[in-house]
Simulated scan of single mutants.
Amino acid sequence: MDVSNPIADVVPSAHGPVLAVLASTSTPLTGRAIAELTRPRVSQARVARILTELAETGLVDRTPAGAASLFSLNRDHVAASAVEALTSLRQQLWSRIAEHAGGWANPPDGVVVYGSAARGDGGTASDIDLLVIRPAEVGADDADWHANVTDLAARVTRWSGNPCEILDRSREELRAMAAAGERLLSEIRRDGRAIVGSISLVPASRAA
């Protein structure tokens, strides 16, 4: 999965970023505004051509506004739900991870995605980096726990196509990392997104 532009996995053309902008809001926008919001950036001229094509299919509504036109996703169109699903692939992945981890015999206290996947600035080769916080009642050598963590990494790769790296730590071990000034904790606190529990479970590093 392209973690910065997930819709590109299915819509690799410039149509993808344009549709992603339209799906992200219910407010009608000018072509210029849409071009400014596209990631990766699409030229205003290219956006104008794409909007004309999409309006012809009925997927996009075009409303005159003086000398300009306003565009919005036609959410009554049969394809609109598919567009919305494609633009929310990262959120769907986080939900799958949370649901799966919640079904463990001893669910993690927290699961935090960090790195490029959390920031949304990676690509198709980017790792999905997860911090999985082990409950106090589960030992570091617990076989069932390690089997669950290994299985989760494999499932994330299967669900996304990206390698998954899991940092498995207890809250006590995280506190020890913070006391040692581990910079990784600062990165996780800055960029991380908690999909189970809260980011507050990650202690601040003394080096922060």
Rank of each mutant, 00 (worst) to 15 (best):
L86V: 14
L70I: 03
S126W: 09
P108A: 05
E99A: 09
A65P: 00
V11G: 11
L51C: 04
L59D: 05
W94P: 04
D144H: 11
G120D: 00
A117Q: 13
P12V: 09
A180E: 03
E137D: 15
G31A: 13
E182D: 15
A67K: 14
L86P: 14
A153R: 12
V3A: 07
R158A: 10
E187P: 09
P6V: 04
G197V: 07
D129M: 11
D141C: 04
R171Q: 11
S170K: 02
L130T: 00
N162F: 11
E99D: 06
R169K: 09
G58A: 10
S200M: 12
L130E: 00
G31D: 07
A35G: 01
A68V: 01
S95Q: 15
G103N: 08
R189A: 07
P40W: 03
E84P: 13
L167Y: 12
T87H: 06
E56C: 09
S24T: 08
V18C: 03
S186V: 15
G122V: 04
G103R: 12
E173N: 12
C164K: 00
D144F: 08
G102C: 01
E165I: 14
R193A: 13
T25R: 06
W159M: 14
G16N: 00
R46G: 00
E53I: 09
L73Q: 09
P12S: 07
S126R: 12
A180M: 01
G102D: 01
L51N: 03
A85Y: 13
G123A: 02
L59Y: 09
A207D: 07
R32N: 15
N148W: 12
V83R: 06
P28L: 05
A98F: 09
E84N: 13
E182F: 14
P6E: 01
E137Q: 15
P40L: 07
A105M: 02
A194Y: 04
Y114C: 08
W145C: 03
A179F: 08
A143W: 08
V60S: 08
G197C: 08
L29H: 00
A207Q: 06
A136D: 06
I50W: 03
L201F: 08
H100P: 02
A48T: 03
R189V: 04
V132W: 13
G139Q: 00
L185M: 08
D151W: 13
V138P: 01
P28G: 07
I195S: 11
P64V: 01
D129F: 11
R158E: 10
P135K: 02
L152M: 04
M1D: 03
V113W: 07
L152V: 05
A101N: 01
I50L: 10
